[in-house]
Simulated assay, not measured.
Amino acid sequence: MANASSKRIATANETALQNLQLGLLIVNLLAPTIRFILSLITSRRFLPPTLPLLLYIVFTGASIFTWRWFVTIGTPERQGGAQVRVGEDLGGKGVIELGWDLIYMTWICTLGSAILGDWVWWFSLLVPGFGAYKLFSTIRPILGIFLPGLFGPSVPRDVSAPAQEAAQPEEKGESRRQAKLRARMEKGDKRVQQVQGRR
């Protein structure tokens, strides 16, 4: 069973790395082509302004770095036809998942800015925002230990109201169930009257 799982992970990793390499080539060749064609048809410039160009360079560099990291950790090593080491599962959670998000968001922003305009690069803020959210949700329990009033579990504001409601039936000498039945009977619920009639 373990060998079948290792083969499945190795095959999935090889397919994912091939698709990733193909995607990087297609996106980074298609985006300038679309920009060039649209610059001939419309009044848009071929080269984007400084900030979108800088964002393109930074995010594409990060995508290439992530792709190389995926190749390093996910490529299975084989010697003489036998599989020696499977590598990390590239479909896993955590940092690997964030790496895929970075790559996909870079592709969306690159093609989107070529087609729709440079404002699409604002979507790139979703990657660090999601990373910050995941980091905060991971360290929140630790912060709750040191700052329980700020990061601890939430407590209802009016704690005295449920305690008073629970204490009322006990003072009268009847259980909660009896108090509920009495309240229903006072409202005229026919089900309660039927139960009372059977007794």
Rank of each mutant, 00 (worst) to 15 (best):
A179L: 09
Q193T: 01
G91S: 02
R35H: 11
N3T: 06
L181N: 15
E14D: 03
E170Y: 09
G197P: 13
C109Y: 01
S39K: 08
A179H: 04
F136C: 01
T15F: 13
V120L: 14
V159F: 14
A183D: 12
P162Y: 01
L150N: 10
M105L: 03
E171N: 04
A114R: 01
S113L: 05
P48L: 07
T75I: 09
P169D: 11
G91T: 01
T42N: 14
A114K: 04
L20P: 12
V155W: 04
Q178V: 02
V71M: 10
G74H: 00
N19P: 01
W121Y: 07
G61D: 07
S160T: 08
G91A: 09
G131V: 02
W122V: 15
C109E: 05
N19Q: 12
L111V: 04
R8L: 04
F151K: 01
V27H: 04
G173M: 01
G94A: 03
V127M: 05
R184S: 08
R177L: 11
V27Y: 08
L24C: 06
G80R: 00
V95F: 08
W69K: 12
L116E: 07
L135P: 07
K180A: 13
Q83A: 08
F65A: 14
G117K: 02
I73W: 08
I108K: 08
W119Y: 07
V155I: 08
I139R: 04
